[in-house]
């Protein structure tokens, strides 16, 4: 069973969100998602300043056998990206919830965060998918 961190929010498409200060949140992909992809070899990050919409493509994470779109869990403006991933994408495999974060987004609508899954709900989703 993949690890799920309790104080985060989650999307149906396996992104996590950490609430930061003010209106800024941190986004990454979950432990379950990095397991499914396998060894990550490349990450294509958005540009700082880009406007993103909830449910739309935010980044691309590539393994040897797959290229997965990462969807933005919320709408807003990208204010910071994790540049370290360009040289060491494996960090996402090793530490998806901390060092492996993708970017920070200044959100426009806090309701979107509230609508995301809780850790308990996401655990249920993952266990269902891992069963199948």
């Amino acid at each position: 069973m993949s690890q799920v961190v309790d104080d985060l929010k989650f999307s149906q498409t396996h992104e996590w969100v950490r609430l930061g200060n003010e209106q800024t949140i941190v986004v990454g992909i979950t432990d379950h998602a990095q397991h499914l992809l396998g060894d990550i070899v490349f990450v294509e990050l958005p540009e700082v300043g880009a406007q993103v919409q909830a449910g739309h493509e935010l980044a691309v994470v590539e393994s040897v056998k797959a290229a997965a779109d990462v969807y933005s869990p919320v709408s807003g403006e990208v204010v910071e990206i994790n540049d370290a991933l360009t040289d060491t994408p494996a960090v996402i495999n090793q530490d998806p919830y901390q060092e492996g974060w993708l970017c920070k987004i200044r959100i426009t609508d806090t309701n979107e965060v509230d609508a995301l899954l809780s850790a308990a709900d996401y655990k249920k989703l993952v266990s269902e998918q891992e069963e199948a």
């Binding site: 070899v41 490349f42 590539e62 393994s63 040897v64 056998k65 797959a66 290229a67």
Partner: peptide, 9 residues
């Protein structure tokens, strides 16, 4: 770099 290619992407 096969993830660029049509059989994956």
């Amino acid at each position: 770099l096969q993830a660029r290619e049509q059989h994956i992407r």
